[in-house]
Nucleic acid binder design. Structure first.
Length: 431
DNA sequence: AACCTTGCCAACCGCCTGCCT
DNA sequence: TAGGCAGGCGGTTGGCAAGGT
């Protein structure tokens, strides 16, 4: 036996609201408020509507300062960012967008934004496949013994600085061709996963990184120590942004709206920890110029990681670090190294003693190279180059944004969000 | 012109949560 | 402490409009 209905459905009107009904409801609430009882309200007004229906009508359409349609790019970004972090918690998302209702955002996401993003993803996917194909073709032509970048320490000082680092690393060696191949989405990916993968490429980060890596075959147990931290400094004062940080329950990750490859001042004597700016993400590009994925450097220098997207790697790239955990970005740190299957294999020594930084004479030269020395039992030097480019500092979310009460609509700046929402806001550091 | 498809979105449904008695 | 009730919320539906055939 189900729950009793909240009202007598036989005696209530359903369907679209008439202007008269709207007028009655609005004028009554303007004068009297709801009286804290939506169920009783329609009887007071003489409306043959369910109390819940009245509440919804008020919240979604009649209350002041409601905006409909015309979502801005910034709002899109915020919605995407929050969706990545907390999923379909529309009321929470709506609370961060003044004038927007959860219903509006939900509809907008389901009908437009999701498709818009998937459309972008198709283009990216298509472009990536063409790039990979071109790379293989070029490698065949060049021969296996030819390297695009020399990786011996002796060569480092002789390199011409900055000549290959000006733009996005994916463009360094392989010009971006016009897409010609038919788009092919990975049929194994469901809608949500596709969006998440796309949003990673757009600069977002998932809090539930376990899910992401599990999809790539990594052992969940190996990921327990990974933490992402939300930056807390250098918040742009003019940008309306939101967010939070809970090191034990990481949630609000970053969303970098664009790339900006900045300088990492490097010299042979400095440690990597000094040079890789904390709270920034970096592209990791292998020595073939292929973008492997992003690296995140946390605010305490710990728990950096290299979530490598194997989809971008060629067959010969699987020996590159798939994931590095508990990494302190300084001298002689050891990075756990997992292969694509998630098995712990070798460790990478990552520190200034084994790190030969490309000699960059000018601080305005974007990018740097970091030599990751792979220790071997024979003591040999298994150098391989990764290219590190700094992303633009992502916009971050201070905890100072007043919560808009979408649930009552009254005196929104005065009232607290309902308990459920308060709890979730607190959980995600949005209160 | 008629029919069909698609997109959009207002409104509803039903479950969950928290408050009150 | 348990049960009832109302609020809150996310998923889903249904109707309308626009576009396509």
């Amino acid at each position: 036996m189900g729950r009793a209905p909240c009202c007598d459905k036989a005696n209530v009107k359903r369907g679209p609201w008439s202007p008269e009904e709207d007028s009655k409801l609005k004028s009554y609430i303007d004068e009297n408020g709801t009286g804290g009882n939506w169920i009783a309200l329609p009887q007071k007004i003489g409306l043959k509507r369910c109390g819940k229906s009245c509440r919804l009508r008020w919240l979604n359409y009649l209350r002041p300062n409601i905006k409909h349609g015309g979502f801005s790019e910034e709002e899109d970004n915020i919605i995407c960012n929050l969706y990545i972090s907390i999923g379909s918690r529309w009321s929470i998302i709506a609370a961060q967008l003044p004038g927007r209702t959860d219903n509006d955002i939900k509809n907008y996401w389901n009908t437009r934004l999701k498709k818009k993003l998937l459309g972008k993803q198709r283009k990216e996917h298509q472009s990536r496949r063409v790039n990979a194909h071109l790379k293989q073709e070029m490698m065949k032509k060049a021969g296996n013994d030819v390297h695009f970048m020399m990786n011996t320490t002796a060569d480092n000082n002789n390199k011409t600085n900055g000549t290959t680092h000006q733009n996005h690393p994916q463009n360094l060696y392989f010009p971006q061709p016009a897409p010609t191949a038919a788009p092919q989405l990975d049929s194994a990916l469901n809608d949500h996963t596709s969006i998440r993968k796309l949003l990673i490429k757009l600069g977002g980060r998932f809090s539930d990184i376990q899910d992401h890596h599990l999809q790539q075959g990594l052992d969940n147990n190996k990921l327990k120590n990974i933490s992402f931290y939300t930056p807390t400094q250098d918040i742009p004062s003019t940008q309306q942004v939101y967010g939070g940080h809970d090191p034990h329950n990481p949630s609000m990750d970053w969303f970098s709206s664009s790339m900006n490859y900045s300088t990492i001042n490097t010299n042979n004597n400095s440690s990597c920890a000094d040079e890789l700016l904390l709270n920034n993400s970096y592209d990791i590009v292998d020595d073939d110029g292929m973008n492997m994925h992003d690296m995140l450097v946390s605010d305490d220098g710990l728990n950096s990681c290299f979530p490598i997207d194997h989809e971008h790697l060629g067959d010969d790239d699987h020996s590159m670090p798939a994931l590095c955990r508990n990494t302190k970005m300084e001298s002689s740190s050891v990075i756990d190294h997992y292969d694509q299957a998630g098995s712990s294999s070798t460790e990478l020594l990552y520190g200034s003693s084994s790190m030969a930084m490309e000699n960059e004479s000018s601080s305005s030269t974007p990018g740097t190279h970091i030599d990751i020395t792979k220790p071997s039992s024979s003591g040999g030097n298994g150098n391989s180059w990764v290219h590190v480019d700094r992303h633009m500092r992502p916009f971050m979310y201070p905890n100072t944004i007043p919560t808009v009460n979408t649930t009552t609509g009254f005196g929104s700046s005065q009232q607290q969000p309902p308990p459920q929402q308060q709890r979730v806001l607190q959980e995600y550091g949005l209160n």
